[in-house]
Design a protein around this nucleic acid. Structure first.
Lengths: 134, 134
DNA sequence: GTTGAGTTTGACAATCGTTCTCAACAAAGG
DNA sequence: CCTTTGTTGAGAACGATTGTCAAACTCAAC
Protein backbone atom coordinates (compact mmCIF):
# COMPACT_ATOMS: atom_id res chain seq x y z
CA UNK A 1 0.00 0.00 0.00
CA UNK A 2 1.18 3.51 -0.81
CA UNK A 3 0.56 6.19 1.76
CA UNK A 4 0.13 9.87 1.28
CA UNK A 5 2.42 11.84 3.54
CA UNK A 6 2.95 15.55 3.76
CA UNK A 7 6.65 14.93 3.36
CA UNK A 8 6.21 13.44 -0.06
CA UNK A 9 3.97 16.33 -1.05
CA UNK A 10 6.53 18.79 0.23
CA UNK A 11 9.20 17.22 -1.94
CA UNK A 12 6.88 17.23 -4.93
CA UNK A 13 6.07 20.90 -4.36
CA UNK A 14 9.67 21.90 -3.85
CA UNK A 15 10.60 20.10 -7.03
CA UNK A 16 7.87 21.94 -8.86
CA UNK A 17 9.07 25.27 -7.55
CA UNK A 18 12.64 24.66 -8.59
CA UNK A 19 13.60 26.21 -11.90
CA UNK A 20 15.83 23.70 -13.56
CA UNK A 21 17.37 20.46 -12.49
CA UNK A 22 18.21 20.24 -8.83
CA UNK A 23 20.15 17.75 -6.81
CA UNK A 24 18.57 15.84 -3.97
CA UNK A 25 20.88 17.63 -1.59
CA UNK A 26 19.92 21.12 -2.67
CA UNK A 27 16.28 20.18 -2.64
CA UNK A 28 16.71 19.00 0.90
CA UNK A 29 18.38 22.28 1.79
CA UNK A 30 15.56 24.22 0.16
CA UNK A 31 13.01 22.25 2.12
CA UNK A 32 14.83 22.86 5.35
CA UNK A 33 14.92 26.57 4.51
CA UNK A 34 11.20 26.71 3.95
CA UNK A 35 10.68 25.27 7.39
CA UNK A 36 9.83 21.69 6.44
CA UNK A 37 12.02 19.49 8.55
CA UNK A 38 12.13 16.70 6.04
CA UNK A 39 14.92 14.20 6.40
CA UNK A 40 17.52 13.75 3.73
CA UNK A 41 16.79 10.08 3.30
CA UNK A 42 13.15 10.89 2.80
CA UNK A 43 13.98 13.35 0.06
CA UNK A 44 16.00 10.69 -1.71
CA UNK A 45 13.19 8.20 -1.37
CA UNK A 46 10.56 10.64 -2.54
CA UNK A 47 12.62 11.66 -5.55
CA UNK A 48 13.25 8.07 -6.52
CA UNK A 49 9.52 7.41 -6.27
CA UNK A 50 8.66 10.44 -8.33
CA UNK A 51 11.12 9.37 -10.98
CA UNK A 52 9.66 5.89 -11.12
CA UNK A 53 6.10 7.18 -11.28
CA UNK A 54 7.06 9.45 -14.16
CA UNK A 55 6.41 12.68 -12.30
CA UNK A 56 10.05 13.63 -12.39
CA UNK A 57 12.92 13.38 -14.82
CA UNK A 58 16.35 12.53 -13.64
CA UNK A 59 19.75 12.83 -15.19
CA UNK A 60 23.21 12.27 -13.90
CA UNK A 61 25.72 15.04 -14.06
CA UNK A 62 29.25 14.69 -12.80
CA UNK A 63 28.49 12.24 -10.07
CA UNK A 64 25.14 13.19 -8.75
CA UNK A 65 21.57 12.70 -9.79
CA UNK A 66 19.60 15.78 -10.73
CA UNK A 67 15.84 15.82 -10.72
CA UNK A 68 13.21 17.98 -12.28
CA UNK A 69 9.43 17.98 -12.23
CA UNK A 70 8.00 17.17 -15.62
CA UNK A 71 4.67 16.75 -17.27
CA UNK A 72 3.83 13.16 -16.47
CA UNK A 73 3.24 10.64 -19.20
CA UNK A 74 5.07 12.47 -21.93
CA UNK A 75 8.40 11.37 -23.16
CA UNK A 76 10.63 14.31 -23.90
CA UNK A 77 14.15 15.61 -23.64
CA UNK A 78 15.85 18.68 -22.30
CA UNK A 79 17.81 21.65 -23.40
CA UNK A 80 19.81 22.80 -20.43
CA UNK A 81 21.88 25.91 -19.91
CA UNK A 82 25.18 24.75 -18.57
CA UNK A 83 25.73 28.07 -16.88
CA UNK A 84 22.50 29.07 -15.17
CA UNK A 85 20.65 25.77 -15.30
CA UNK A 86 17.61 27.01 -17.18
CA UNK A 87 15.83 24.07 -18.72
CA UNK A 88 13.57 23.82 -21.73
CA UNK A 89 11.54 20.72 -22.44
CA UNK A 90 11.75 19.64 -26.03
CA UNK A 91 9.64 17.10 -27.80
CA UNK A 92 11.93 15.07 -29.95
CA UNK A 93 10.00 12.90 -32.33
CA UNK A 94 12.81 13.10 -34.79
CA UNK A 95 15.26 11.67 -32.33
CA UNK A 96 12.83 9.01 -31.18
CA UNK A 97 12.53 7.86 -34.75
CA UNK A 98 16.25 8.00 -35.26
CA UNK A 99 16.98 6.02 -32.11
CA UNK A 100 14.56 3.30 -33.07
CA UNK A 101 15.92 3.17 -36.60
CA UNK A 102 19.53 2.93 -35.47
CA UNK A 103 18.70 0.26 -32.93
CA UNK A 104 16.77 -1.79 -35.47
CA UNK A 105 19.57 -1.37 -37.98
CA UNK A 106 21.93 -3.19 -35.66
CA UNK A 107 19.40 -5.76 -34.55
CA UNK A 108 18.96 -4.14 -31.17
CA UNK A 109 15.56 -4.22 -29.55
CA UNK A 110 13.84 -2.34 -26.73
CA UNK A 111 15.70 0.86 -27.37
CA UNK A 112 15.83 3.39 -24.60
CA UNK A 113 17.83 6.51 -25.05
CA UNK A 114 19.49 9.22 -23.11
CA UNK A 115 19.36 12.47 -25.02
CA UNK A 116 20.14 15.78 -23.44
CA UNK A 117 21.49 18.92 -24.98
CA UNK A 118 23.59 21.28 -22.95
CA UNK A 119 24.39 24.77 -24.12
CA UNK A 120 24.33 28.40 -23.16
CA UNK A 121 20.97 30.08 -22.95
CA UNK A 122 20.49 33.46 -24.69
CA UNK A 123 21.23 35.43 -21.54
CA UNK A 124 24.37 33.55 -20.65
CA UNK A 125 25.50 33.67 -24.25
CA UNK A 126 25.26 37.43 -24.18
CA UNK A 127 27.22 37.63 -20.96
CA UNK A 128 29.84 35.18 -22.12
CA UNK A 129 30.26 36.97 -25.41
CA UNK A 130 30.60 40.33 -23.69
CA UNK A 131 33.26 38.90 -21.45
CA UNK A 132 35.19 37.23 -24.26
CA UNK A 133 35.21 40.24 -26.53
CA UNK A 134 37.92 42.11 -24.69
CA UNK B 1 55.31 18.83 -19.75
CA UNK B 2 53.56 15.49 -20.27
CA UNK B 3 55.48 12.36 -19.54
CA UNK B 4 55.13 8.93 -20.97
CA UNK B 5 54.85 6.27 -18.32
CA UNK B 6 54.27 2.56 -18.66
CA UNK B 7 51.36 2.88 -16.27
CA UNK B 8 49.48 5.17 -18.58
CA UNK B 9 50.17 2.84 -21.49
CA UNK B 10 48.97 -0.09 -19.44
CA UNK B 11 45.70 1.67 -18.75
CA UNK B 12 45.32 2.60 -22.39
CA UNK B 13 45.97 -1.00 -23.43
CA UNK B 14 43.63 -2.46 -20.87
CA UNK B 15 40.93 -0.07 -22.01
CA UNK B 16 41.52 -1.12 -25.58
CA UNK B 17 41.24 -4.79 -24.66
CA UNK B 18 37.99 -4.31 -22.80
CA UNK B 19 34.91 -5.12 -24.82
CA UNK B 20 32.39 -2.52 -23.84
CA UNK B 21 32.30 0.20 -21.27
CA UNK B 22 34.20 -0.54 -18.09
CA UNK B 23 34.37 1.19 -14.77
CA UNK B 24 37.62 2.55 -13.42
CA UNK B 25 37.41 0.03 -10.63
CA UNK B 26 37.06 -3.01 -12.86
CA UNK B 27 39.80 -1.72 -15.11
CA UNK B 28 42.01 -1.45 -12.06
CA UNK B 29 41.11 -4.99 -11.10
CA UNK B 30 41.88 -6.23 -14.61
CA UNK B 31 45.25 -4.51 -14.53
CA UNK B 32 46.07 -6.04 -11.20
CA UNK B 33 45.10 -9.43 -12.61
CA UNK B 34 47.42 -9.07 -15.55
CA UNK B 35 50.28 -8.40 -13.18
CA UNK B 36 50.56 -4.67 -13.57
CA UNK B 37 50.60 -3.23 -10.09
CA UNK B 38 49.04 0.03 -11.09
CA UNK B 39 47.49 2.08 -8.35
CA UNK B 40 43.83 2.89 -8.30
CA UNK B 41 44.37 6.61 -8.20
CA UNK B 42 46.62 6.32 -11.23
CA UNK B 43 43.94 4.48 -13.16
CA UNK B 44 41.50 7.27 -12.38
CA UNK B 45 43.98 9.89 -13.46
CA UNK B 46 44.91 8.05 -16.64
CA UNK B 47 41.28 7.57 -17.58
CA UNK B 48 40.49 11.21 -16.98
CA UNK B 49 43.42 12.16 -19.18
CA UNK B 50 42.36 9.79 -21.93
CA UNK B 51 38.86 11.19 -21.83
CA UNK B 52 40.17 14.74 -22.08
CA UNK B 53 42.50 13.89 -24.94
CA UNK B 54 39.64 12.26 -26.81
CA UNK B 55 41.10 8.77 -26.73
CA UNK B 56 38.30 7.53 -24.53
CA UNK B 57 34.61 8.06 -24.21
CA UNK B 58 32.97 8.23 -20.85
CA UNK B 59 29.43 7.97 -19.68
CA UNK B 60 27.83 7.84 -16.29
CA UNK B 61 25.64 4.97 -15.33
CA UNK B 62 23.98 4.65 -11.98
CA UNK B 63 26.65 6.35 -9.95
CA UNK B 64 29.89 5.48 -11.58
CA UNK B 65 31.78 6.59 -14.66
CA UNK B 66 32.29 4.07 -17.40
CA UNK B 67 35.01 4.41 -19.97
CA UNK B 68 35.69 2.97 -23.35
CA UNK B 69 38.46 3.34 -25.89
CA UNK B 70 37.30 5.10 -29.02
CA UNK B 71 38.66 6.26 -32.31
CA UNK B 72 40.19 9.61 -31.43
CA UNK B 73 39.06 12.77 -33.12
CA UNK B 74 35.70 11.55 -34.26
CA UNK B 75 32.53 12.59 -32.58
CA UNK B 76 30.11 9.71 -32.32
CA UNK B 77 27.59 8.06 -30.11
CA UNK B 78 26.96 4.59 -28.81
CA UNK B 79 24.48 1.81 -29.02
CA UNK B 80 24.91 -0.24 -25.92
CA UNK B 81 23.45 -3.59 -24.99
CA UNK B 82 22.06 -3.19 -21.52
CA UNK B 83 22.48 -6.87 -20.87
CA UNK B 84 25.90 -7.93 -22.13
CA UNK B 85 27.50 -4.52 -22.59
CA UNK B 86 28.31 -4.88 -26.26
CA UNK B 87 28.87 -1.48 -27.75
CA UNK B 88 28.50 -0.22 -31.29
CA UNK B 89 29.82 3.13 -32.35
CA UNK B 90 27.35 5.06 -34.42
CA UNK B 91 27.94 8.18 -36.43
CA UNK B 92 24.99 10.43 -35.85
CA UNK B 93 25.01 13.30 -38.25
CA UNK B 94 21.27 13.44 -38.09
CA UNK B 95 21.31 13.95 -34.37
CA UNK B 96 24.13 16.45 -34.56
CA UNK B 97 22.07 18.50 -36.92
CA UNK B 98 18.97 18.14 -34.80
CA UNK B 99 20.79 19.15 -31.63
CA UNK B 100 22.19 22.26 -33.25
CA UNK B 101 18.83 23.17 -34.74
CA UNK B 102 16.99 22.74 -31.45
CA UNK B 103 19.59 24.74 -29.58
CA UNK B 104 19.49 27.54 -32.13
CA UNK B 105 15.72 27.52 -32.08
CA UNK B 106 15.75 28.46 -28.43
CA UNK B 107 18.64 30.87 -28.71
CA UNK B 108 21.06 28.50 -27.08
CA UNK B 109 24.65 28.47 -28.23
CA UNK B 110 27.59 26.11 -27.94
CA UNK B 111 25.45 23.01 -27.93
CA UNK B 112 26.96 19.85 -26.58
CA UNK B 113 24.87 16.77 -26.31
CA UNK B 114 24.68 13.50 -24.53
CA UNK B 115 23.16 10.89 -26.77
CA UNK B 116 23.34 7.22 -25.99
CA UNK B 117 21.01 4.45 -26.95
CA UNK B 118 20.60 1.44 -24.73
CA UNK B 119 18.89 -1.69 -25.91
CA UNK B 120 19.22 -5.42 -26.23
CA UNK B 121 21.65 -6.72 -28.82
CA UNK B 122 20.51 -9.45 -31.22
CA UNK B 123 21.90 -12.24 -29.06
CA UNK B 124 20.40 -11.00 -25.83
CA UNK B 125 17.12 -10.32 -27.60
CA UNK B 126 16.97 -13.93 -28.70
CA UNK B 127 17.69 -15.17 -25.22
CA UNK B 128 15.22 -12.79 -23.63
CA UNK B 129 12.53 -13.71 -26.11
CA UNK B 130 13.12 -17.40 -25.59
CA UNK B 131 12.79 -16.90 -21.87
CA UNK B 132 9.65 -14.80 -22.13
CA UNK B 133 7.87 -17.06 -24.56
CA UNK B 134 6.85 -19.65 -22.01
C1' DG C 1 76.60 7.83 -18.37
C1' DT C 2 75.26 11.17 -14.91
C1' DT C 3 72.81 14.77 -13.01
C1' DG C 4 69.05 17.69 -12.02
C1' DA C 5 64.39 19.30 -12.26
C1' DG C 6 59.92 18.48 -12.17
C1' DT C 7 56.15 15.30 -13.18
C1' DT C 8 53.93 11.03 -11.88
C1' DT C 9 53.05 7.43 -8.85
C1' DG C 10 50.83 5.00 -5.04
C1' DA C 11 49.06 4.08 -0.40
C1' DC C 12 45.91 5.99 2.38
C1' DA C 13 42.92 9.44 4.20
C1' DA C 14 39.33 12.49 3.19
C1' DT C 15 35.22 13.73 0.79
C1' DC C 16 30.87 13.45 -1.14
C1' DG C 17 26.57 11.50 -2.67
C1' DT C 18 23.64 7.87 -1.71
C1' DT C 19 21.69 3.87 0.69
C1' DC C 20 20.85 1.09 4.83
C1' DT C 21 19.23 0.31 9.60
C1' DC C 22 15.91 0.32 12.91
C1' DA C 23 13.09 2.22 16.46
C1' DA C 24 9.39 5.52 16.66
C1' DC C 25 5.58 7.28 14.13
C1' DA C 26 1.45 8.11 11.50
C1' DA C 27 -2.04 6.97 7.77
C1' DA C 28 -5.86 4.01 6.32
C1' DG C 29 -9.22 0.69 7.39
C1' DG C 30 -12.05 -1.89 10.54
C1' DC D 1 -10.31 3.89 19.03
C1' DC D 2 -7.19 0.32 17.65
C1' DT D 3 -4.50 -2.35 14.79
C1' DT D 4 -1.77 -2.90 10.94
C1' DT D 5 1.79 -1.69 8.21
C1' DG D 6 4.13 1.50 5.25
C1' DT D 7 6.95 5.76 6.26
C1' DT D 8 10.08 8.72 8.58
C1' DG D 9 14.48 10.37 10.32
C1' DA D 10 19.15 10.41 12.54
C1' DG D 11 23.11 8.57 11.90
C1' DA D 12 26.02 4.83 10.43
C1' DA D 13 27.57 2.47 6.52
C1' DC D 14 28.98 2.29 1.93
C1' DG D 15 31.10 2.95 -2.54
C1' DA D 16 33.14 5.82 -5.92
C1' DT D 17 36.20 9.41 -6.53
C1' DT D 18 39.67 12.89 -5.31
C1' DG D 19 43.34 14.96 -2.47
C1' DT D 20 47.86 14.47 -0.06
C1' DC D 21 52.66 14.02 -0.04
C1' DA D 22 56.97 11.62 0.05
C1' DA D 23 59.38 8.64 -3.00
C1' DA D 24 60.22 7.04 -7.66
C1' DC D 25 60.74 7.89 -12.13
C1' DT D 26 61.09 10.34 -16.86
C1' DC D 27 63.15 13.45 -19.76
C1' DA D 28 66.53 16.48 -21.30
C1' DA D 29 70.77 18.57 -20.76
C1' DC D 30 75.47 18.12 -19.74
Amino acid sequence: MKRNTWQRDAVRDALGDADGFVSAQSLHAALRDSGSGVGLATVYRALADLAVEGDADSLQQDGESLYRACTPGTHHHHLICRNCGTTVEIAADEVETWAHAVAAQHGFTQPQHIVDVFGLCPDCTRIATAGTTT
